[in-house]
Computed example of a mutant assay.
Amino acid sequence: MNNSLHLDRESPIHRLSPEVKIVAVLLFTVIVVVTPREEFAAFAGYAVLIAIVAALARVPAGWLLKRATIELPFVLLAVVLPFAGHGEQVEWLGMSLSVEGLYGAWNIVAKGTLGVLASLLLAATTTTRDLIIGLDRLRCPDVITQIMTFMVRYLDVLADDARRMRIARLARGYDPRFLWQVKAFAVGIGALFLRSYERGERVYLAMLSRGYAGRMPVTVGAPAPAREWVLSAALPVASAGIAVTALLA
């Protein structure tokens, strides 16, 4: 399965092992989330760190901003908060806005945007397969990594099955478009589920016949060296320094 979010570039960030990037992004996100919403300077510093990593990874700003629109539903929710909040009010352009709602909206937009951008950078610099390898090296439960592995391998197969079923339905002159015609769509989903379940049973039996004992064979290289852990620590350490400096100031 192709990772539509991965950018095949040559950069220092791309060359890092997946597990160090996963840990760095996770720690950065945690620091962003626990930062008090009133520390505006800290969030500006986090944005600068994201920009530096994007430049090192050769990920265009336009590419990031375009895909960051996935958070628009949360932004729309944030827009409502200043009007729906209670407590102290401020006047702006003839409108009465809640101070608490403004802080809540800022909190959602700032932390959500930084988290989305960090995740997009991780996806842009790491293939789906490498992400699963990184989770496996980080001792993520086997059942989770195996489910993700099979999802990566068979999602294209399921999408192709769904496409062929739709073409067959159209060839028979039936193209449901309205709510009262949803039965055909539901029947198709049910048939696709049964096909997927039967395929999973066959794959599992085939794996057992080849010696599967609850864990996939390890075919990846050695884990990340200490040098890469040190390099990847630059992002969470810098963000922690920004947070501490902002709190002390």
Rank of each mutant, 00 (worst) to 15 (best):
N2L: 09
S4A: 04
L7Y: 05
H14L: 11
S17M: 08
P18A: 04
V20K: 01
K21R: 07
V23D: 02
L26I: 14
V33S: 05
V33L: 14
V33I: 15
R37E: 01
A47S: 15
L49G: 01
L49Q: 07
I50G: 02
A51P: 04
A51H: 00
L56M: 04
A57Y: 09
A61K: 11
K66A: 15
K66E: 12
R67N: 09
V80Y: 09
P82T: 13
A84G: 09
G94D: 07
M95D: 08
M95K: 11
L97Q: 00
E100F: 06
G104H: 05
I108W: 08
V109Q: 10
G112V: 07
G115S: 15
V116D: 00
L120F: 08
L122G: 03
A124P: 02
A124L: 01
T128R: 07
D130P: 12
I132Q: 03
L135G: 05
D136C: 08
D136Y: 04
R137V: 08
R139D: 08
T145S: 04
I147L: 10
F150E: 09
M151Y: 15
V152H: 11
V152G: 10
R153P: 07
L155S: 15
R163F: 06
R166C: 03
R166H: 07
A168T: 11
A168N: 12
A171C: 15
F178R: 06
F185N: 11
A186K: 09
G190Q: 07
A191R: 15
E198P: 10
R202I: 04
L205C: 14
L205I: 14
A206Y: 10
L208V: 12
Y212M: 06
A213C: 14
A213W: 14
V218N: 15
V220M: 13
A222D: 06
E228N: 11
V230C: 05
L235Q: 07
V237Y: 05
G241R: 14
I242G: 03
A243D: 02
A243H: 03
V244M: 09
